[in-house]
Design a binder for these strands. Structure first.
Lengths: 124, 124
DNA sequence: TCTTGACTTACACTATACTCTAAGTAATAT
DNA sequence: ATATTACTTAGAGTATAGTGTAAGTCAAGA
């Protein structure tokens, strides 16, 4: 798979794919002409990067995880630790969002109530 | 309350307070010497801005909400609509985080299982 | 062979959100 | 009176994460 195909399949721009590679997040094989060749494992890895990023992991941390991943099985323990730490972060974020939803609902209820009162006054 | 005090109370830097004001998110009264004077209602507003920001609302959208807020009661309907739209966004984010937590747990389980297998092989 | 299109590189530019500096003013403490 | 501190402004600099451009290479079809 070359870069254009990969970009479409993974829903990520070619620019971003090259950028991630330059940053050290992805390592890609080249063909004889020097063009990037992606395979299924690259695809999975890119999708995983997207999830890490979408849940607030910074590229510099994803890069660190990536480095360990390309080092192989010996780094499994470390990677597991990173994921468990990130898991904590994710559950914290969930709490935050739940709390915020409560706030927002209160605010919305308050607005609705205020507007009802205004309507009532107008009606009298 | 002057800017230094406000910054500490709201846990936000003086730089950021000035930046938000310059951007049009906050409108602040000045004293005779031209210094910013914050009151309790500013405090509440600033805390609300922080929550909007923490839940992914862009400053330019917060600015729009702010503009309506400073315009007074006539804009309540519009603000309510913004909040309800943002509420949708927040619940979507919650779903996303829940889904991601599932993925992450699978990945963690997979790592743990892989490491157990490696241990077993070593043991034989 | 020529052209088209997909690729390559290095580097410049953009957006978002701060963060800091420089130069100056005003109020307060010694 | 003077030094210190807290403030003021405009504008520059930083971090993060892309996004786009320019110049050139390579391969495949007409």
């Amino acid at each position: 798979m070359r870069i254009g195909e990969m970009a479409k399949a993974a829903e990520i721009s070619e620019y971003t794919l090259r950028y991630y590679e330059k940053k050290g997040l992805i390592q890609v094989r080249r063909d004889d002409a020097g063009r990037r060749c992606y395979d299924e494992s690259d695809m999975e890895w890119i999708k995983f990067i997207k999830r890490l990023k979408d849940t607030g992991m910074l590229l510099k941390d994803i890069k660190e995880y990536s480095r360990l991943r390309y080092e192989g099985n010996a780094t499994m323990q470390e990677r597991l630790q990173m994921l468990e730490k990130h898991r904590e972060y994710v559950t914290e974020q969930q709490k935050k969002w739940a709390e915020y939803l409560g706030n927002l609902d209160d605010k919305i209820a308050f607005y609705k109530d205020s507007m009802d009162r205004i309507e009532k006054i107008k009606g009298t």
